[in-house]
């Protein structure tokens, strides 16, 4: 069975490795350059300043590499590609070509056939996704000072979350292929199902993984307590300006130095307060594991349903 699985899927494994190699050909040199320049311009060049209060060379770094963060939007589709090209054809292609009648009437049970194929491909996909996720996390490290790695999109392309997404996408493909045993319709199911699940979790579930922290600080503040203590790398969920009784004035934040407060406030009351709701930066990996866990659990459920379904296919 191992040989058979390898023989059947070696071509797509080759294409995948080529695809990831092309990705690595971009990620590795740019990552090395970014790390080197970050070290030179920010760590050494800004020895006296903090990341919260960056120095001029930090701006050099940011203008050189700032545009790289948009590359992350492209990376969002990587798990989907696994779902389309690894998941959907796994069962659907066998049935579409009628070869399930041939392989299921040899000496092994369908259950074993399905478990072996899903197990081997799932294992291979996991390994590739872990390499991918940790690779992107390494690449993103310097950029994390420009855009928090905890924010949507950046959270989704690095660490262990993409491993969960990839397994989920493959499982959706397998289940769709067992349900509608044709490759193209199965692919057509993967697309909206994957996107819907991702959006639902990212928008509605993820902010609630842990109770967010609320920061309350006056609009007139010195450099020492400016920003209200929200660390770099936190995930800002909501930020607004309110009156002391809690009524809403405006969204955003405002910090005015005590020296020229009147001019800065421009007629606004001086007792307004900033209110920031956020997930602290040190929860990043907890959230990563929760996110990966949710999608891995969904993947296991879908694979279980698909294997049950395989026993009813004719």
């Amino acid at each position: 069975m191992i040989w058979l699985t390898w023989r059947q899927h070696r071509k797509q494994a080759l294409y995948t490795v080529i695809g990831l190699a092309v990705l690595a050909a971009f990620i590795v040199p740019t990552g090395v350059a970014m790390h080197r320049d970050f070290d030179r311009l920010v760590v050494k060049g800004c020895a006296t300043s903090t990341p919260d209060n960056p120095c001029d060379t930090f701006h050099d770094f940011s203008t050189t590499y700032g545009s790289y963060i948009y590359f992350c939007v492209l990376l969002l589709v990587v798990p989907l590609l696994f779902g389309l090209f690894w998941g959907a054809p796994l069962i659907a292609r066998e049935i579409e070509q009628g070869t399930h009648h041939m392989i299921w009437t040899q000496g092994i049970s369908r259950r074993r056939w399905a478990l072996t194929k899903v197990g081997l491909l799932g294992g291979a996909v996991t390994v590739l996704a872990v390499v991918y996720g940790l690779g992107i996390a390494w690449w993103f490290e310097p950029l994390g000072y420009l855009e928090s790695r905890f924010d949507e999109i950046f959270f989704d392309v690095q660490g262990v979350a993409p491993v969960g997404y990839t397994l989920f996408a493959v499982a959706v493909g397998i289940a769709a292929g067992a349900l509608v045993p044709k490759v193209v319709p199965a692919m057509a199911i993967v697309l909206p199902a994957f996107i819907a699940a991702r959006i639902a979790v990212a928008l509605y579930a993820r902010p609630r993984f842990a109770t967010p922290v609320t920061n309350d600080f006056p609009v007139i503040a010195g450099d020492a307590d400016g920003g209200g203590g929200m660390q770099v790398g936190s995930w800002l969920l909501n930020s607004d300006i309110r009156r002391p009784d809690g009524t809403f004035v405006s969204s955003g934040a405002m910090v005015c130095p005590p020296a020229d407060a009147t001019e800065c406030l421009g007629g606004l009351s001086a007792d307004l307060r900033n209110r920031q709701v956020f997930q602290p930066a040190d929860r990043f990996w907890t959230f990563q594991w929760i996110e990966a866990g949710i999608f891995t659990a969904l993947a296991v459920l879908l694979v279980w349903l698909a294997i049950r379904r395989v026993r009813r296919i004719i």
Partner: peptide, 15 residues
């Protein structure tokens, strides 16, 4: 199954 040989319709094999 070990004692049954089966050739399905359209003689499917991995192409």
């Amino acid at each position: 199954l070990a004692d049954i040989g089966f050739v399905a319709q359209n003689t499917p094999v991995y192409r």
